[in-house]
Design a binder for these strands. Structure first.
Length: 120
RNA sequence: CAAGUAAACUGGGUGACCGCCCUGUAUUUGAUACAGGGAGGAAAGUCCGAGCUCCACCGAGCGAGGUGCUGGGUAACACCCAGGAGGGGUAACCCUACGGAAAGUGCCACAGAAACAUACCGCUCCUCGCGGAGUAAGGGUGAAAUGGUGAGGUAAGAGCUCACCAGCAAUCAGGUAACUGGUUGGCUGGGCAAACCCCACUUGGAGCAAGACCAAAUAGAAGGGUGUUUGAGGUGCUCGGCCGAUACCCUCGGGUUGGUCGCUUGACCUUGAUGGUAACAUCAGGGCUAGAUGGAUGGUCACCGCCCUGUUUCAGGGCACAGAACUCGGCUUAUAGGUUUACUUGCCCC
RNA sequence: GGCCCCGUGGUGUAGCGGUUUAACAUGCCACCCUGUCACGGUGGAGAUCAGGGGUUCGAAUCCCCUCGGGGUCG
């Protein structure tokens, strides 16, 4: 279950970085690449420039919560790169940023989070 | 009441909803349901010390480190406890790499006459003077200048003599010891060992990405060097024992990027008793307290608590340092606020 | 997670086995040379020696702690 949505290997990240298309907001940079599978996978990149281990871990937990609650179209590998200003953001600001980036890239399936949360 | 010293503890709480990881049970093997558990005092820095694993193993010497007042504690330590000495503070109390400079070598810039063996200006005597002799009181240089103060003494002076203090040696007493106190003696002759070094004690090397197993995959008769009782290689070097032969080392090329164990019962936590000034030890009872693998321990909302700002109906903002990765014992560093205990000094009242 | 290395002008490096001058190259600025630029020549500025503490009469150098940067592993 877990392996279905997680990007694990460094090679996968490098492929998305090199060939993927980019969407930018003030808090997050998103890179997307088609993987030709019937599911979508995602991962997070939080560098040491962002903050100490506590702050980085908190951001990864928040993003995992947010992205897990969105209903994604299948067939894409997505990498979220956290920018330094995101340390001061709260949950709602990050949620807004992720939602707008996903809609820009047209990766959201259907309409409404009610169905998604019901399935999960 | 104010200022301070030392030690110990804590480091937001409650509820609702939605999630993550592990263990157990049941259905049964796809997963679901229920129950239980789920970050810290520093988890950090990786500065020391150990356990554990591999280097096949054992011994001796050399080399290279580490520690450094004394006694004790400990698995061990550079840690802790107690004591001594020196220094700081009115005091409570705090700090200290605190062995050896008559084993040897080296260094001590500039200034100064002189920096480890000496006399520049001086002072006194002989002497017209030049010069010679005695001396180290005073001046000056320096971080440091040949014990300090006072009295006697003298040509002038000087431990030359005496008293006290500091220091050295011997001896006596106390103490396990570091050391302290007394007596006597001769009266003394610099610093640096976090410079080399000497002395005492001590250290083999690497690290859980150690290491063991299962499964999968591919291409080694590839090239070079060394060697088979004339002995390669065997984790600093040398020697000895021992092991030892399609063996070892280097280069080039190829495959895999999965899983299981190690992985949490341990020098463990806690309560009581006993011994000890204490660190700590022993005995008896009770307890099980995180184990991830792109890496769990979270999110939203409401109320309460604390702090700040406006102002006192209330409103807004904030709530330290920081996240386990084989496991322990320490050290060091970061840390908003709060609580408790003991003690010191000052002021006021009785 | 473990184990190592480094930190000196803007940049890249030296630094005497402690005491006196922090040196060199390049870059920067000014002047000379040239009709102009470059090259060349002359002069000058520019360093909390990563930060703090200790040893010492004296520390870039010796010792300890902290900070920052980099490398490596089956």
């Amino acid at each position: 279950m877990k392996a279905s949505w997680a990007l694990t290997k460094r090679v996968q990240y490098a492929l998305v970085y090199r060939k993927g298309s980019t969407f930018i907001s003030g808090l997050i940079v998103m890179k997307v690449l088609s993987n030709r599978l019937d599911l979508s996978r995602y991962g997070f990149s939080v560098t040491k420039k962002v903050g100490n281990a506590v702050q980085r871990n908190r951001l990864k937990r928040l993003l995992r919560q947010i992205v897990g609650s969105q209903l994604l179209k299948p067939g894409w590998d997505i990498v979220f790169i956290v920018r330094r200003r995101a340390v001061d953001a709260n949950y709602h600001q990050l949620e807004e940023a992720v939602a707008s980036l996903l809609s820009q890239a047209r990766l959201v399936q259907g309409n409404g989070k009610a169905t998604s949360s019901k399935i999960n």
